[in-house]
Design a protein around this nucleic acid. Structure first.
Lengths: 340, 340
DNA sequence: TTGTACGCGTTATCAT
DNA sequence: ATGATAACGCGTACAA
């Protein structure tokens, strides 16, 4: 008992205001049931004593907290912080607190966070999972905690999910490059085990085939992770190709990779977009801010978060809730990195 | 009562295991006081029933939660997410949950978050405040919640704080530029009402004067905020200066501004660093990833977070705690944007 | 309109 | 070693 912060309770307020405990509670929860004069007196007392409601007690009584949680995959990726912002806004609008957690792409951290959140009895969990197919997700839902998958797809319909049509996104990117006259294109991304990446690649292939080009002219340059460093290394491989055979454009699985490529290309003395056009994915703020502003496929990030929040809240409060898979449409934003 | 998730309590576990409630509690909190056989039986029951401790009840009983909170100034700025990561790590090591909140630079949001956090009875609050001088901060401390200021300085010693020596940082940056032979330098930053910015500017001036240069050759280019967009607009002003009088180097108050300048300079056809050298501040990941890798002043971001956490925890648990102002030393990281 | 009594899940004290 | 019981702060049904 290092420091008893003398936390003042409704009881103290009641005493100070000279009313009963129940009256204080009424002032708090059904202000109409109490006379203006007493209410005023009680409110004075609360202010004087610095009364702060104890959420733990409220939650215990209510059986659930007034909080949501978002377990994000990578707080270092601006895409996810933007999604988080959308969630935060929606939570605030609903009068809910928001726990923000960061799994950092590690399943163990993700699990730890989930454990904490279940112990907290949060109303619902939003999550961009490390592995959308993990059985751990089912375990969460089975324990009764509403769960919404954000920016990932899970086969089946055990959960709500919000995602973006990545096949379409891939198509948009490659169609744009074809429009700009490119006849040799590289897809830079990986690992293909990530659904997003595979989908974007598939969309790219579809557009490529639809335009009647030969499959071998759409090169795959694999990266191990979607980071700037990985992009840089992919850039080395790309710029190492003799200019006669080198793709004239690179479509990257995300903006971080694209920035890495851009940096490496610049270092290698390639002019962007004249000698190498680049398309990214996500349209993070830094995409527009790059030395050569990046053409990118924009996803409605905040919207993603907003809708996801609405879905959890619905699942948490509406008995007739049924799971939905919401799919948003991406949009190509053309900038200097593809416009000569 | 939409959905009673039949939350299983210690009572249920006790019944299922055929022991008393207190025994279950002992298994949870003092496993040594209970026979191996009974313990095993209880643990079985817990697993079978899917028992999850209720944090609300624990906190109510304990009078405080087992959580910390960090109210960050801008989740979109990688600098702060890195600080947050340090905090997160420290919290995890201490077995504490972490509430991550984002004030988005708005005092109202900050206040709302603080209200929630006090209601949650978090053990302590870490915060990069919108306004370090605000009286609201004192109010928090007076209510008994340990508070540590992160990356800001507050006059007086009512709180612990961790920050970085920004005057030194400014000095390092400008000394580096002087070493590289620059004789006309611009300081790009603002508003000067922000302590950091003023300090970095002051350090720059000190180094400049110490080298015997005329004050008027250290131009101030003011920006309204430390964002890429503001940097871009500052870049326009800078590149607009006739080359004879134009500074040959820009020292920017943070990396976002530097990236904006870099982009604008590139667009205007200036070669970096030959025609314009650029130094940023913070050394965010994107600084190294820029088209021309950015020289920057690095702050020990994660360390900042780690130490800040240790300070709150100490304040929350150690009766003999006394406030400290920890100041870290920044470090210049030289990259291509200043190295011809 | 106001006051009283009980229960939420957990933990710690005390008695067995 | 184990079991019974009170208390934490709040919300609410019910009694006055």
């Amino acid at each position: 008992m290092a420091r008893p912060p003398a936390s003042v309770s409704v009881k103290d307020v009641a005493a100070a205001a000279g009313v009963s405990l129940g009256t204080v509670s009424n002032v708090l929860n059904r202000p109409d049931r109490v006379t203006a004069s007493t209410r005023e007196r009680v409110e004075r007392a609360m202010a004087d004593l610095g009364f702060v409601r104890n959420e733990s007690a409220r939650s215990l009584r209510a059986g659930r907290t007034r909080a949501l949680a978002y377990v994000m995959l990578d707080a270092g990726n601006p895409f996810f912080t933007d999604v988080a912002q959308g969630i935060e806004q929606a939570a605030e609008d609903a009068g809910l607190s928001l726990f923000l957690c960061n799994s950092q792409g590690r399943a163990v951290r993700e699990a730890t966070h989930v454990d904490h959140l279940q112990a907290q009895r949060v109303q619902g969990i939003l999550m961009t999972p490390v592995d959308p197919e993990s059985a751990a997700l089912d375990a969460i839902a089975e324990r009764g905690t509403p769960l919404v998958i954000v920016d990932r797809i899970r086969k089946g319909e055990q959960f709500c999910s919000v995602a973006v049509d990545d096949i379409l996104g891939g198509r948009l990117a490659v169609e744009h490059l074809i429009d700009r006259g490119h006849q040799r294109v590289a897809f830079v991304g990986g690992p293909l085990s990530i659904g997003q990446v595979a989908d974007r690649y598939q969309g790219a292939q579809e557009a490529w085939a639809a335009a009647g080009f030969a499959p071998e002219d759409l090169t795959l340059i694999a990266v191990e992770s979607l980071t700037v460093a990985a992009g840089r290394s992919a850039g080395e491989r790309l710029t190492g190709i003799p200019s006669g055979r080198r793709p004239t454009a690179a479509f990257c699985a995300n903006d971080l990779v694209a920035l890495g490529i851009l940096q490496q290309a610049t270092t290698a003395g390639l002019r962007v977009p004249e000698q190498l056009a680049i398309v990214g994915y996500d349209d993070i703020e830094f995409a527009a801010a790059a030395a050569v502003p990046l053409t990118s496929v924009r996803q409605p990030r905040q919207e993603l978060g907003r809708v996801a929040s609405e879905l959890v809240i619905d699942e948490a409060t509406n008995i007739h809730h049924h799971h939905q898979q919401v799919v948003f449409t991406p949009e190509l934003v053309a900038r200097a990195s593809t416009l000569a």
